[in-house]
Design a protein around this nucleic acid. Structure first.
Lengths: 218, 218
DNA sequence: TAGATTGTTAATCGATTAACAATC
DNA sequence: TAGATTGTTAATCGATTAACAATC
């Protein structure tokens, strides 16, 4: 379908476009030009048109872009309209927060299984699901379709769990652990969330002089 | 001190260097060459040397880099050795998870205040801190030094809170809300964490054919 | 010293921006 | 039709990679 492969830079901007378009749609706006969108998103109109044209001509000369239509088009590109089953491994603070805080269904995901290895946690309820023993993971994945796994466990546990999951055909991971999945499974779909990296980046920038005007070149 | 400004691409790689060096240090390794580090991190040796040389010559010809020393140098660049006070706004699932899951002290941060607006939550304990009424935020920030705020509240609440905080001199934000702080305060130090963007990116990549070998150019 | 590996300059590559013809 | 704004090509910019002289 797509002629060329899409660069990572473009892909990483798509969710942001989607969020902005969702918001504009909610506000009742019908159309928008690349110029106006560029001002709101603080990027260039050129970039927006380039990005969108990776996927086809979604706009109309002299008019702009239909917001609702464009939002849906990007949603389709992101596969948000497909139903996928997700399981969560690790029901600590983070796992519980992610599963209860995020509305997965907005993105086509449904949480269908929740696992932990702590006996004291197994059997508890998370949303409408009772926490299963991670020892039964293989069994669960063979009996149920699982499209993606969220890993909220430490690095060591993650390696073991991914091995099991990958063997069962689960090749997509939302990885909050620091285990480097791609090193072992280069063809897996992996999205790493390194909260500590983000915190360190902030740490760097908060102490830099925030004076873009001071241009001493000596 | 620094001759040139450091590009965002370089800065974003620093935490990852730090993590890898920490791990190598823990494993007891003493020195490493840019080539070996490049293999472990899956990037080029050139890039590593370029990146590090933005901040000075940390290596030694014919030898490589001293791991412990380099780790500390990068830690200093990231200001991880400075003590900063942090407050958390919003003690829902996410706020609680972040404050209890992450060890802030590893990065020089100390959590000194926790706020919410829900009467049912105010007064509860998070770590060793009892949750304060967000109405007392201004008071707290004038009486105590606050270097950074973590925002785990919805967009609407965030706008209000940032206004108060910014006026009190808090100019750094770890922002889990979808409120666009930089639009209103362009000189603030902001690190946005958009978990949903990450999820959408994964959604995109998990359905792409993961066949880098298939090179049909038609 | 010879070997290894950095620091740094030059070459390449890719991503962003600018420009403008196409077209609604 | 005239005006607006896209889609797309060309120009620019920045980041990555390669190469190699400096040096431990």
């Amino acid at each position: 379908m797509q002629g060329k492969t899409i660069s990572q830079s473009v892909i990483r901007r798509l969710p942001r476009y989607y969020r902005f378009l969702e918001e504009l749609h909610r506000e009742g706006m019908e159309k928008i030009s690349s110029r106006e969108l560029s001002e709101r998103m603080r990027l260039t109109a050129s970039q927006i048109r380039q990005d969108l044209n990776c996927f086809g001509g979604f706009g109309q000369q002299g008019y702009g872009y239909n917001i609702s239509e464009l939002k849906d088009k990007i949603g389709t590109i992101l596969h948000l309209d497909e139903k996928r089953n997700v399981i969560l491994i690790g029901v600590g603070n983070l796992g519980r927060a992610i599963s209860e805080h995020l509305d997965f269904s907005r993105f086509g995901f449904e949480l269908t299984g929740v696992f932990d290895r702590e006996p004291s946690i197994i059997g508890r309820k998370i949303l409408n699901l009772s926490v299963r023993d991670v020892a039964t993971l293989r069994e669960f994945c063979t009996e149920n379709r699982v499209d993606m796994a969220i890993l909220c466990i430490p690095r060591t546990g993650a390696q073991e769990v991914v091995k099991t999951l990958y063997a069962c055909g689960v090749h997509a991971f939302w990885n909050y652990s620091h285990y480097d999945i791609l090193a072992d499974y280069p063809d897996a779909a992996v999205e790493n969330v390194h909260l500590t990296d983000s915190l360190m980046t902030l740490s760097y920038s908060m102490n830099e002089e925030l004076c873009p005007t001071s241009g001493s070149n000596e």
